[in-house]
Design a protein around this nucleic acid. Structure first.
Lengths: 343, 343
DNA sequence: TGTTAGCACTCGAAGCACGAGAGTGCTAAT
DNA sequence: ATTAGCACTCTCGTGCTTCGAGTGCTAACA
């Protein structure tokens, strides 16, 4: 059977209507809703076909129809109307490139959540493959060495190292020069064992410290551990009865946001897909996280400068307003881009 | 009417039972439950008295009784059995004094939440009145100056300053020495205008930078803005039907955790009370946050060194296991104390 | 005087029947 | 190919009844 234009129109009408109301939609509604001027009986026949083809389902005999995952997928793939939305609140965020990254991201999450009425998550950019910009060792007190590591994009990482020996100012200065001259401008892949050995050799009796610093640098750049995720609006999930009609479901859903590594899975998936246009939609069972099978997730990758990539995600019910969400994300991407890349 | 020993025993039995079951408790239950060897009829009379005195209430005519806020209050004030609990998982946390503070606190929150089955929050210590330990300026690139500020307790704060001028290494070194010699060991109150003026004078043409650094220091120490709160287990709230029997209630409750300044109110309250023993219990309407009037909140203040104080809070239903929660908090306080203060 | 047994009464929870309404699928007419 | 008509199905809300837990009161008892 073929999905001709009329069937498509009906499918679209069913989905649109269901997105709005959340109720199964019947043939009579469609008959009035569309400009097809068909009677409900005709629509019924068509809907029967659509059901057979798997685009819509009946929750129970003689109820209206609701879209299946396949239906949503078709809708998202072919029927979206790009309505570029203006996110007014977001305008106020621009301009402060070197503002603390985390306040910025936190705010982005909040704006997204309140704007869409879904839950939002934003991951801090992962600086895998990114360049080291600056290292600074300072002796804070005897036996305690503070290592500050700055990575391209002004991401800053502090670590306190405990050292046995007490160092004089000059030694610290020497170490700083040593480290900076050799390591600055390199990305993690370029710091190999040979180089570490050479550094240690030059550091002489302080090779131990160099080792520790290198570890700290590796740690700073290693992204997994540092995967910070900001979320907002998880209570929005409670607004959608189909997601939280019983306690366990609700609890499970709220719980997802507690465990960072669960959300991390979403991120992995998104980032690993290199050739995406930037926006990705997971509908129902398509999501990599099993416990979100009743949700849809829309993710977008943002880029700040060389290879610094983070993810923004919106999590909501399957009947989310894909148009709006995708539009919102797109404008947001644009804004971030113009703040961090063009300028 | 007097609250004689028998009445107390009955009150206690009612509360204990209600804490366990969450169901209104009837006279017959008490009659069997206690070692008083009284018939249900007698208990009924006593319960009638207790109700008249305001310690218990009937949710509706001819149902069992549940404790009122006053009842809980009496219970908490006079009837708690200190069962010092061991929090096994917590043992693993010790020893790492200079570990990153925030991972530590996050973990504390999680352990508390899973251990008690309530929601937990932990605020990072506010270092009001705390001493500056170390300042380090470094030129990261032309026009960008990185200021690292370390406060007692190894709380580290980074700021990037944009400066017009490009400085040579020697100047930066001089500024560092200048700042450190004058400011180290001081707390925010001790850095007055006269001192700032003197510093600026000595900095000569770089007085502008000094000004910015001082601002950054002030910002670093100013606690309100930096009030970080770690939460965990908010989905636990969904486990208690009386808190989340309808959507709005649930949503409102989950929402509380989203807004840091709401939780902040609890903290304010706790910290401002100087002469407390360290643990404070707010029952129902006693809490400073209106939207938590169906909850109880148990907060504790922890101290790390000189005046660095933070708050730990457990939020749950009024029928929370006060014994357990208070016990848990107490042992936890002890552990924190031994890690950070004794050592 | 304090305690207890007995009993009528109250009220919510759970179960059941029933009708209304929305929607379908099929058939026959257009 | 479309549509009107109709019987059928299923959910949802409503009202009714029953059940049981629990109370309050009274009268008897130690």
């Amino acid at each position: 059977m073929e999905l001709d234009e009329r069937k498509q129109k009906i499918l679209q009408a069913v989905i649109r209507n269901y997105l709005e109301t959340g109720e199964p939609v019947g043939s009579r509604t469609i008959s009035k809703y569309t400009d097809l001027n068909l009677s409900s009986a005709t629509i019924r026949n068509e809907m029967s076909d659509l059901e057979e083809m798997g685009y819509i389902v009946q929750p129970y005999t003689s109820a209206g129809r609701i879209p299946s995952d396949k239906g949503y997928r078709f809708y998202v793939d072919t029927m979206l109307e790009e309505k570029e939305r203006e996110i007014e609140e977001l305008k106020g965020l621009l301009g402060e490139k070197d503002e603390k990254m985390d306040t910025m991201l936190k705010r982005v999450a909040r704006v997204l959540a309140t704007n869409t009425n879904y839950a939002a998550m934003v991951t801090a950019p992962r600086y895998r493959g990114n360049k080291l910009k600056f290292i600074q060792l300072s002796q804070v007190e005897a036996g305690q060495l503070l290592a500050v590591i700055v990575v391209e994009g002004n991401v800053i990482k502090n670590t306190i190292l405990n050292v046995d020996e007490s160092l004089d100012a000059e030694t610290v200065l020497k170490l700083n020069i040593l480290l900076n001259t050799h390591l600055n401008g390199l990305c993690i892949d370029e710091i190999n064992l040979a180089m570490i050995a050479e550094l240690k050799r030059q550091a002489g009796i302080h090779s131990g410290i160099v080792g520790e610093v290198i570890d700290a640098v590796a740690e700073a750049i290693r992204s997994d551990e540092d995967l910070k995720i900001y979320t907002s609006g998880r209570n929005n999930m409670l607004k959608y009865p189909e997601l939280t009609d019983n306690r366990e479901k609700a609890s499970e859903l709220i719980d997802i946001f507690e465990e960072e590594h669960t959300l991390g899975k979403l991120v992995e998936e998104t980032l690993s897909d290199d050739n995406n246009t930037g926006i990705q939609v997971y509908i129902g069972s398509e999501t990599p996280v099993q416990s979100m099978k009743d949700c849809s997730v829309v993710t977008a990758t943002y880029e700040l400068g060389d290879g610094m990539r983070g993810t923004i995600g919106i999590i909501g019910p399957k009947r989310m307003d894909y148009d709006k969400v995708i539009g919102t994300l797109k404008t947001l991407m644009g804004q971030l881009d113009s703040i961090y890349n063009k300028k």
